[in-house]
Write a protein that binds this DNA or RNA. Structure first.
Lengths: 329, 329
DNA sequence: CTGAAAGCGCTTACAG
DNA sequence: CTGAAAGCGCTTACAG
């Protein structure tokens, strides 16, 4: 049968409340009894029942990662995969479980959030921030469920971990300029996303600083069809462009390369830049410079901030901005 | 405050046991009361507390996915990422949460398993099967915690979802043969892994059926260093090989391609085959034929089998083998 | 069909 | 410091 706190109490000849205090490191137990009880629990390999503890203390011992469904489109699987691993590592170290929450296909993120609020099955949430409606997070605030953003949301001020989109973009475009390209067009993700805006701003900054007058920006959604159309349009409007900076990576980038190839223009002649790095870029026949995001650090930083909240502390900084790395090819 | 079954009972003017039965679809409630209670609960958006339900019923309402840490090496992030998504989808549909379990770095899989046994925080487990020690799963069996394998384990007979490694391998090598290659070497993963053995067997089958006498097999671990060394050794021992079949994909494959390039031999002249497909193979300058695994189906099938167990049913088939798809380039 | 009661395994005031 | 008791929000025999 399951080993409970009652057995421990009986064997140790103390009240179970004493066992509970000893195990949880609370004051009100003599050092001697504490040692005895701790030793006994270790010997018997006792661990408390997660659900009993959760019910009694109203802390579940688990945190949730809420992945917006659309994330699958814009980001390669590698993105969330690396982040999950990093979060799991931190959660492990803190003796917490990691719940993966994701809307049923077709639904938005409010479903899982409402479920979490009602079922009370996590102590806090890490949330992919883009495309989140303010109503959703205000529910979380009402209910006192702490959460941390990965990325930021233009409509919601909240604690977040993000990367230096502006600086990374600026440095990448500066590199393209220093490589001799002068007509660098920018293909960006949805205009509503903060990181799209920032990456475009970095692009414009770099051009401005270099005194480069030629510019062309186009926003697009992340579906294959939209991306292809956008590249085609850019090529048509600016047949003289000599470089293309795409503010996203993954599958989306591959779609763009497809169109470049089909257009008859030789992509190898074009300067190519992208945000998000993949090792396989080393293996394709087109040199492409990228900005690499510190995925593991994003995950572990977000988790650490959440655990600060759970411990009752408020982080000093609202937005944690992590550095990115330029990968030149 | 939290809306509980007591409030529902009070408003509906019935006992809370009646509410519980109505909500859980148990018999012993008049149709009329059931309708009333269900309507009230829906109106008030009542959902039971996960921890209270777990404690009282000793079912947690969540399942766990146990990812062996080493998986990160041998398989690209895409592998588990796709599987997680598929499992989450099924768990969602069944109103269950998905817990991600992974050993702390450096540890093996027994840590999370023992934690699950003691803390009782999942109803069942989906486990990456390779490299699992029989002692670990026998603990699960003792404790009555149901589990399903993804992949199979040579030392443990258990319910599993796997892909047709043998057939896929056979078909791929047969294709290489029909393309005119005659000296096809096979670089396989660790010999202890069942899928390595099966993929090699498929390779040998294809050669044998074609009456092709030339063969060369080498096993290797999945670290970058081991992989590189193995390719180099293969090239040295068999300078006349005209094709290479690598029974794994992802980062490992990229390491192998590195060595081929460095060796001075032109990889474009070589027939190249691999197990596991990635879209970016379309973009590298070496044509490479692959076997594509149905990742989503692996995840959702494993989850379905687990839920069958949880419902008290035993699947008719012990090993579910899913078809793979050849991708020719 | 209906409801009062006990119990799941903990935590947390509270009294001694 | 120590322990008896109540309570967390459910489920599940059990009696009516």
């Amino acid at each position: 049968m399951k080993l409970t706190i009652n057995e421990i109490a009986e064997i140790a000849q103390v009240a179970k409340s004493t066992v509970s205090k000893a195990l949880n490191g609370q004051k009100g137990v003599s050092e001697e009894k504490r040692r005895q009880i701790l030793a006994l629990a270790a010997e018997l390999k006792y661990e408390p029942s997660a659900s009993a503890q959760a019910l009694a203390s109203s802390r579940t011992g688990s945190i949730g990662l809420l992945i917006p469904h659309e994330a699958g489109y814009s980001l390669a699987g590698a993105y969330w995969s690396a982040i999950i691993t990093a979060i799991a590592e931190v959660a492990n170290a803190r003796n917490h479980s990691l719940l993966i929450l994701t809307p049923s296909s077709g639904d938005d993120v409010s479903g899982p959030v409402e479920a979490v609020i009602r079922r009370r099955n996590v102590d806090g949430l890490i949330i992919g921030a883009e495309q989140l409606a303010p109503e959703v997070t205000s529910r979380l605030v009402e209910e006192g469920i702490p959460f941390v953003f990965i990325g930021r949301n233009p409509r919601i001020q909240h604690y977040s971990v993000d990367v230096d989109n502006l600086g990374g973009s600026d440095r990448l475009v500066t590199h393209l300029l220093s490589s001799g390209y002068r007509k660098i067009a920018c293909l960006a993700g949805p205009e509503a996303y903060l990181y799209s805006q920032e990456r475009v701003a970095g692009y414009l900054n770099a051009l401005h600083r270099a005194g480069n007058g030629w510019k062309a920006v186009r926003h697009t959604g992340y579906t294959s069809a939209e991306g292809r159309e956008a590249v085609a349009a850019l090529l048509e409007e600016h047949p003289d462009l000599d470089a293309l900076y795409i503010t996203a990576g993954g599958e989306f980038l591959l779609d763009c390369i497809d169109v470049l190839r089909l257009s008859g223009s030789d992509p190898r002649r074009l300067g190519l830049g992208a945000f998000d790095d993949y090792r396989f870029f080393d293996y394709i026949d087109i040199p492409i410079c990228t900005v690499r995001q510190p995925l593991k650090a994003i995950g572990s930083t977000a988790a650490s901030i959440l655990f600060q909240f759970l411990a009752g502390n408020t982080p000093s900084q609202m937005n944690q901005i992590l550095d990115v790395e330029l990968v030149l090819r």
